[in-house]
Design a protein around this nucleic acid. Structure first.
Lengths: 225, 225
DNA sequence: TGAAATCCTTAAATAAACCTTAAATGCCCG
DNA sequence: CGGGCATTTAAGGTTTATTTAAGGATTTCA
């Protein structure tokens, strides 16, 4: 899943790329209209974030040429101007969403998701903490280039810890959330899984470890910076 | 092309219906949440214009239930509130566009067009992954010069896997999408077909294999490289 | 300091999910 | 009707996840 950002303000472009990668997609940046169009024409992207005001060629023109070349990659347009005419022109020339600057990060994320979702593709949901990332859709735990697949219970448990990494989660909560309200799982079940998870964390060589707080619960901790 | 308007302010609903008909589409109106959901559930519409504040059931809830029932009709949400949290919630619960009242008619038209445009789009007839390609029209699976014909169920299943090559697809989803919502097909049916497909993949000598992720689902994987 | 409580780890046993194959059933078409 | 194909059902085998159990390590606190 790759997203192309065409935006000449480098700081904003970088921020957007970061957000995109955080969401679990790949990203590429072009800061110039002509180059942006070239890159977009490859058709290898799953979405394009496109600024209207650009050096070389403006966003509307890029969009028109793309659509004319039958490249149907979904496009999320950005603009500083909030004029009605702009919004209408953007949408009518083939954009999928129109977002006015300044916008908040969650809104950008939501729009991008909406635009990508229409492709029929499932959006991988990814949680991060320090050098670890967990993909909830396939239960894959990664650290740097290494990664491995968790069993379903392992995934359920560690995703509880990811939820609020600084706050310890009690065994009782883990049992009710993972095994269910009226299961007959005991504390030792949790302990066993925590042990499995710790083994996998060291296998990945991660900075993160699971620490126990007696009588309180477990939490994630990034070993001293 | 038929558009459903779910909006309790009758004057606005009427205006919207007029605009929609002017654009050359058919329209229907529901002014109540429950009835709106009922009507939307028929799945016969090509787009839905959905107000957030409704008697009976609010727009977010309607949207969630629709998506849960696998009704993928594009939805354009309307709201008087312009709160960020609302917009984000709307988009993340499956809306395709979010428009804040009051809006101008041309903008509404442009949004509706953008939302509908995707719908009529031709789904690519040929899907590819690594050295494999699948032709949906004749159900032919090819790898290099070799190729063979799949049965209709085999084709349905593998095309689901092609859609999201990186993400595992659960048996539950496979059953509802291939056998239908209320079929009595069981997990073993899926397993049997996966087995058939695997046999054909090795017959083709493909690089691609179908891997199972316990309790999660199946996905395509290009073996090494 | 020492006993109790809590936590950790590992191996083995059990249960669940998945795989494969063969045979049974249904369906279309000559 | 009967052959050929797609689909479903059934059964047993394989693999993997999960649970259980037992003993060791650590902390708490009297």
């Amino acid at each position: 899943m790759r997203v192309l950002v065409i935006e000449d303000e480098r700081r904003l472009a970088g921020t957007l790329a970061d957000i995109i990668e955080e969401m679990g997609y790949g990203s590429a940046i072009r800061t110039d209209g002509i180059q942006g169009l070239d890159e977009a024409m490859t058709g290898i992207y799953d979405a394009i974030v496109l600024d209207v005001m650009l050096p070389g060629m403006n966003g509307f023109e890029i969009l028109r040429q793309l659509r004319q070349a039958k490249i149907e990659t979904p496009v999320l347009m950005l603009t500083a101007r909030s004029e009605l005419a702009d919004r209408v022109e953007g949408l009518n020339s083939g954009a999928d969403y129109y977002l006015t600057k300044p916008f908040e990060i969650p809104e950008f994320q939501a729009c991008l998701r909406a635009v990508i979702r229409r492709q029929g593709q499932i959006i991988p949901e990814i949680k991060q903490f320090d050098d670890l990332s967990l993909s909830l859709t396939d239960g894959r735990l990664s650290c740097g280039s290494r990664s491995l697949v968790l069993s379903s219970k392992e995934k359920d448990i560690i995703s509880l810890l990811f939820l609020n990494p600084q706050v310890p989660v009690s065994k009782e909560i883990i049992i009710t959330k993972v095994w269910g309200f009226d299961s007959d799982a005991g504390d030792n079940n949790v302990e066993a899984y925590i042990s499995f998870l710790r083994k996998k964390l060291t296998l990945l060589g991660s900075n993160v470890q699971i620490t126990a707080q007696r009588r309180i619960g477990y939490r994630l901790e990034a070993s001293h910076s």
